[in-house]
Design a protein around this nucleic acid. Structure first.
Lengths: 223, 223
DNA sequence: TAGATTGTTAATCGATTAACAATC
DNA sequence: TAGATTGTTAATCGATTAACAATC
């Protein structure tokens, strides 16, 4: 996917940082104070050298002979990903998926702040979804001039996705999480991440069929 | 993510195959009969050699000097991904996300057949979600002995995810699409794909902050 | 035939991982 | 100090892409 990669940090590194953060929150919950990269490997399956390398793009966070302070590393990763501060988000599309996303508590927990919900369906505009009034997408430019959100979640039908994207960019959005099953064409300064359920299921389907001649229920867990 | 990769086909190739398929459906809709790899590159941004290489893992699908027949290639890719035939799917978790997924028409369109919905909440069991009665997850083994679904979609809270996964594997599931924000430990014959909204947003957030000093709305589309 | 485009080889690029000197 | 573990370099691995002979 031709997603912009202006920096030298590999995208897989960024994805893993989010994984580490989640894992560190678990460790904090279990009152673990310090963790070594070897322990990370044992518990997450991510190679210890990979973990250290990922962090090394951003600085030095551990103590040789000791490891990493769980809370400090949490804070460092949050700061790297810029999710230590509020990130305002627009949601476009108040259908089933939009509604599920708007109601997802994980957003708030990570300081993602859904500031407005838009749709173009007059049957929906003016109604409430969770605690958000559904706004007319035609007003997105005007409204985002105030809100200044830079991230949008796109949960619209595929045939609307490209035109909505272009309007969002005019309204000042720089980053789009796209749930529509289509490739968005965007200028180089805009970042897009695609989520496609059907694609994920197709990859699973491929693995199933090739690897499993027949039903073989198993009890063993690896590691 | 330590997802199983028993075959020699790169996972990115499989992901792109699903993308090509989507694109070919658009072409069919536009009554395009034949397409060249150069045209694919122009319209999807995926390198022409990449496209040909991806297909070459599975055979020869084009005619030198001519290109690829749109319909034939659709059928070939569907067969490769094994989505030319019905794939039965279990959905675990009848919350907001589960409901949105169950109502998603894209599943049916791609021959994914949601055959049962489970939850462990007695307030939900017995109710209807779309056209599915919500079943007691405690009965998954018994019920899937009949249904023989091999794919499950996991839309449960993170703290339930691991135990539900283990029960699913005992019930004969080999492939899991995991929406819970946690790393699942599975035996080697089980394939997992993770979807994490927060992770996606975190990657977007990183790119935003590093690349855009200030608001600069733009009208230009690339290409 | 001449022109176009494939399938595949080889070169390039980039990400992962092993190894180890530095250091707590 | 001795043991543990980091940060980083260098080696390995694998995926992407350019180039081109084969062929329609």
């Amino acid at each position: 996917m031709p997603t912009v990669n202006n920096s030298k940090v590999p995208v897989p590194t960024l994805e893993r940082l989010a994984t580490y953060l989640r894992y560190l929150l678990d460790l904090e919950h279990d009152n673990v104070e310090t963790i070594s990269s070897a322990e990370v490997e044992k518990q997450t399956g991510i190679n210890a050298a990979q973990f250290r390398k990922d962090l090394s793009y951003f600085g030095e966070f551990g103590k040789p002979g000791v490891g990493y302070n769980v809370i400090d590393l949490q804070n460092s990763i949050s700061r790297i990903l810029k999710i230590d501060q509020e990130q305002r988000i627009l949601l476009i599309g108040a259908g089933n998926l939009g509604s599920a996303l708007a109601g997802y508590p994980g957003l708030r927990e990570h300081k993602f702040n859904l500031v407005a919900v838009f749709d173009n369906n007059y049957a929906k505009i003016g109604r409430k979804m969770w605690d958000h009034e559904i706004l007319d997408f035609a007003r997105v430019h005007e409204i985002n001039a105030q809100l200044k959100a830079r991230i949008a979640i796109l949960a619209v039908p595929r045939n609307a996705a490209q035109s909505v994207t272009e309007e969002l960019i005019r309204a000042g959005v720089h980053a789009i999480l796209n749930f529509a099953p289509t490739i968005l064409r965007v200028p180089p300064h805009v970042v897009v991440r695609n989520v496609s359920f059907v694609q994920e299921l197709a990859v699973l389907s491929y693995h199933l069929s090739t690897e499993h001649p027949e039903n073989s229920p198993s009890e063993a867990m690896e590691d």
